[in-house]
Design a protein around this nucleic acid. Sequence first.
DNA 1: CGCAAATTGTGATAAAAATCACATAATAAC
DNA 2: GTTATTATGTGATTTTTATCACAATTTGCG
Lengths: 208, 208
Amino acid sequence: MSNRTRILRLSRYKNAALRLKSLNFLKVFSDNLADATGVTASQVRKDFSIFGIEGNRRGGYQIDELLTQLNKVLGKDKLQKFIIVGIGNLGRALINYQGFVKSEIKILAGFDIDPAKFNRKADALILPMEELPGFVKTNEVELAILTVPEFAAQEAFEKLRNAGIKGILNFAPIRLKSDDKVIVHNLNLETEFENLIYFVNTHTVPQD
Amino acid sequence: MSNRTRILRLSRYKNAALRLKSLNFLKVFSDNLADATGVTASQVRKDFSIFGIEGNRRGGYQIDELLTQLNKVLGKDKLQKFIIVGIGNLGRALINYQGFVKSEIKILAGFDIDPAKFNRKADALILPMEELPGFVKTNEVELAILTVPEFAAQEAFEKLRNAGIKGILNFAPIRLKSDDKVIVHNLNLETEFENLIYFVNTHTVPQD
DNA sequence: CGCAAATTGTGATAAAAATCACATAATAAC
DNA sequence: GTTATTATGTGATTTTTATCACAATTTGCG
């Protein structure tokens, strides 16, 4: 009882709660979160109930308490260290992205095979692939982002697997052959574009 | 009978078929596509059947014919023109991304409020926001990508809406208030990261 | 040509996800 | 302190989505 869409919704609730907190709200109700995220109020409550997150009848949810619990469920109560393989346009953008700094996500280093991209400065460390296994071990990294071209994806994936990486966010447009040692989450930008195109062309409104 | 996940799967089938075509395959069976995309063969057939895509019993699907039909359903039988608003790390990466060139997706121009980012060269046109409505009209653009910071998202959205944009791929971490004139597809990278973190931390395997 | 093998297409069935609806509890008002 | 009001939490129900299973059809082979 823990599918992907439900977890995605928990993330959204957390973001909505954070925004309300920044507006000095102290408590929040299921229908506030529902409005902010575009689901029904009972969906919110059901999701919470499945993860044992409780509020007070009539009193709603204390935002601070709620955030603590959501972060705990989502594993954001501790720093999550990533590396990134493939420093093209997208890889570079992610490494420079400032949106994660306030959250518990940190991209420690990038890796590439192109010496022209290497960079030993601490703020945007880019290292040769050969150093990947050592780096992963020393820094106890479990998570990786894969932003290499399609033809290089499977090989890069094997290297990450062998280095002991446990989870990969894969932007390469290919389904990686994996056993269940490594969890791969695929995110294909072209597919997302196509999805939007479909709904615009058919004038139908998807329920997000 | 046309939800988002089903359309996402059609995109994946298309990508898988393209890959097989590049390996000189002429026909493909539902279980090939199933293997390549990680679903069941009957799911593939059911998806096709819902969109009236037919193969031959015993003969499978002719790849060329299948691609034509999938592209038609997905609206990729004609060029889809995008603009992009917000030229930060991610916006710049998408504008420079080469992955779309072979597909029917083209990003015509970027828009920003920062004069330092303006660029009138044809290959990576970046214009001031004031020129957006005119550009959209002249070039008959219906689709946009929104990569501005959270605080600027709602305002940028209104401008896109007023300019006549019909669909928006929104990377800003906020749910935009919209009527049904504009279709908004939200894609929050932090949420995707959190999703992976959850499944790695809980050692559960999501069915992708 | 006729039989065997393989694959589709889809109605029936099962599983999963979302919504409903209401008893239960907390809060506020007087 | 009693009553009225407002939210939650969750079992029951409905809706949606996916799988099963098999008849129908095509292809290949002797």
